[in-house]
């Protein structure tokens, strides 16, 4: 295996909400092209961790370095990081007052100052990739949940990010729509993008993850490759967690 550089370096990350400590001494390195799945019970801090990476959440102690840029309040740095780090949300967060196409071209036009024609071309490209090109002129509320989430993924792809963050992307979907979104994510995983996914979909983790991380009560309990993680869990808490989610 060639020496890959670390694109995300998290050192001694600690975060408090008021008196409550939500992240405890997180240390994590993510290599370029790695697929990381973060699992754990609700309230374990996994969403918070991922949202720190693109500075949607701030933290009191520790450092996060993304693509050799250290996260801070520096506006230029934040902008630079957000241009290369994309986020897909649990509740899609598409802009309801804009068409699908406008949702995708908004950032390229206003942030990257791309000419409109070019932005539309790129947008249509990605819409085709996720299979929604024919809905380009519709509004988000006219699409199903699965379709909206695929649009959200396309929206985040428009700036060709090297790192993609997923915050429970299928948790708000009806069961029959989960697979269409996972299929898109699996395709992306084959394209050597760095991906950090918070998800309950263990099938996805088994298929494409390079590493699976188990978090509970704000700290990383165990991390391993998928084979070891699922079949030979070491910690008691992970064993308990796996028995709960895999029993049905």
């Amino acid at each position: 295996m060639e020496q890959q550089e670390d694109v995300i370096e998290i050192r001694n990350l600690n975060k408090w909400y008021g008196e409550f400590q939500v992240l405890k001494d997180i240390n994590l390195n993510v290599k370029k092209g790695e697929i990381i799945v973060v699992a754990g019970p609700s309230g374990s801090g996994k969403s918070t961790l991922v949202r720190c990476i693109n500075y949607l959440e701030q933290f009191q102690e520790g450092t996060i370095t993304v693509n050799d840029v250290e996260l801070s309040d520096d506006v230029k740095k934040i902008k630079a990081i957000r241009e290369d780090v994309a986020m897909v949300f649990q509740s899609f967060n598409l802009f309801p007052h804009l068409t699908i196409l406008d949702n995708l071209t908004l950032a390229p036009i206003w942030v990257k100052k791309t000419p409109k024609k070019e932005a539309i071309e790129t947008a249509m490209n990605y819409l085709e990739r996720v299979g929604i090109a024919d809905q380009a002129k519709k509004y988000p509320n006219q699409l199903s949940g699965g379709q909206q989430q695929r649009v959200a993924i396309a929206r985040s792809l428009c700036k060709n990010p090297s790192i993609m963050l997923f915050d429970e992307p299928t948790s708000a979907l009806d069961p029959e729509m989960i697979s269409e979104v996972l299929d898109v994510m699996i395709e992306l995983a084959h394209e050597h993008r760095t991906m950090v996914c918070v998800t309950h979909e263990m099938g996805f983790a088994k298929k494409v993850a390079d590493r699976v991380i188990f978090m509970e009560s704000g700290q990383i309990i165990e991390e391993n490759d998928p084979e070891t993680f699922f079949n030979h869990p070491e910690s008691e808490r992970l064993k308990l967690f796996l028995s709960q989610i895999l029993s049905h």
């Binding site: 693109n54 949607l56 241009e83 949300f89 509740s91 802009f95 908004l106 950032a107 942030v111």
Partner: peptide, 12 residues
């Protein structure tokens, strides 16, 4: 989530 999405795609 709308505020967050707008932040995440880099809008000022």
């Amino acid at each position: 989530g709308q505020y967050e999405a707008a932040d995440a795609i880099g809008l000022s």
